[in-house]
Nucleic acid binder design. Sequence first.
DNA 1: AGGGCGAGCCAC
DNA 2: AAACGTGGCTCGCCCT
Length: 593
Amino acid sequence: MATTNYQVVKTETQLREAVEHLEKHSVIGLDTETTDLDPYNSRLRLIQLATPDGVRIIDLDAFGHGDFANNEALAPLRRLLAAARPIKIAHNAKFDAKFIKHKLGVDLGGLFDTLLASQLVSAGDIEERHSLDAVAGRYLNESVDKTERLSNWEFDLSAAQLEYAARDAAILLPLRERLIEALKTNALVQCAQLEFECVMPVANIELNGFFMQKERWLKQLSAVEIKRAELANELQEILGVDAAQGSLFGPARANINLDSHQQLTEALNRMGVPVPDSTRNWKLQPLAAQYPVIATLLEYRTVQKALTSYGQNMIDLINPATGRLHADFRQIGAPTGRFACTNPNIQQVPHAVEYRRCFSGHPQGRKLVIADYSQIELRILAQFSGDQGFIDAFNSGADLHRVTAAQVFNVAVEQVSKEQRDFAKRLNFGVVYGIGAQRFSIMTGVGVPEAENVLRKYFSTYRGLDTYLREAANRAVREKQSRTASGRLVRFRFDELDRQQISMTQRNGKNTPIQGTSADILKRALRLLEDDLRGTSAKIVNIIHDEVVVEVDEDQAQEIAKRVERAMCSAGEEYVRSVPVKVETEIADEWVK
DNA sequence: AGGGCGAGCCAC
DNA sequence: AAACGTGGCTCGCCCT
């Protein structure tokens, strides 16, 4: 491996010279070394900035400890990082952006993210790896030695450490060249722009964190724990087996593991319950009316799930430095471009108010602005299909599901029953996923022939929708790929002789452009919001696919709510033009609508 | 002992 | 003949 030419910057004069040099370039490589992964509980040690003639390694330890944001000697560096030019290339720029924002107080400007670029070119292939080493190997046929990455960056640095640090930044320059070629070849430049512009907003969301009231959460947990114990006892009474030895007070009971499907099936069989081929809730549901034990079991599962997935672990993830939850958002989390979220996944907090009311503004008096797109996926479907009936339904301003019900069941809009509307709602949402009669039958309880009838009626009502979805499905099979409105590419790999895989691809072909465009819209909205909320007390604290939660000072809540709504609508209107884009906004103390 | 996997269930 | 899409988390079970 060729050695990388580098220069360690330790004085104010050296820094000024380095920045002057860097500012002459239109593009520079950027990497950082930190003592740990969490910006609130670790130090930013090095910032490496690469040009074709070498790497400037800024040793922040030489610039005092702590207040880098107000250190006058670092002003040129802050200016360089914040400016739109030179473009900064980074691999997973979110990570560096968070440290730079928290430690130096500046938003990184002008980003090219090699991780996101690589993910876009891979077009949803979840097999492909995207570590810097993997990407450098794929595009440059070079490897990046990672042995120093986990070394100690606290104290004096070895030549090997500095060499490693320099190389990680230097390699980004040629890597970008190759990735630009790949992005162009795949017509992904526009989509890449959308993604890159979203990095800083996402970094800020993670830094902001979401406030969760610890005491209330714990109280909620103990209430659920009591309920769980009651239900578990009840179930063990019924399902437990007689132990070999009884006692003076009767036969002993041996508990079964209620979370083991195997033991559960055996126990239910023993008491004569006709267990279906699986113990999934929706399979057991029909038996609940006849067998009280099933009803209790279903209730137990809900409570158990709540306890294990949304329990103490949430408390453990509260950051001691901020008292808030700083979840990890993966910007391209799904092949469709949707976000994924971990540690904790605050995109899947149960809807029940007992949970949601634990999330609030902080400190006292801060409000939450909760804004979500109204039926965005169905509006995207209206846009893509151009179906006049569907478009009219939205433009009429009337309740879509009611209008659909009226059309499918041939009744006046005012005559639609609650049941019919509910039916239509399931239909409308189902078609987005490429639903079939089989599934619709199970979902609604009507027979398969009747489900087929309803679907036929639905698609003859919305012919344009039928045509569009068929074509989307066929194209996915024919071209082995789909695109979203931003041009995001998703490739499909399937065995062309396997009917199941073909129908899977057809469903993907229907769903991917819709779900993916919804993700495009949210990302565009985050970019617009970043600019519209700057200088206010507003902070984005959570995003959930079609919803944005913003925390704001009480006196600004009304104004911010308006701005959020306007930005989100504008983002939607960039992709959806034939029907109105609607955003529903509420101001609340807690995350409850 | 600990990783991989599937089942189950939460969100959208 | 047709099994509705995308994730994460936790558990039991099976394997090495």
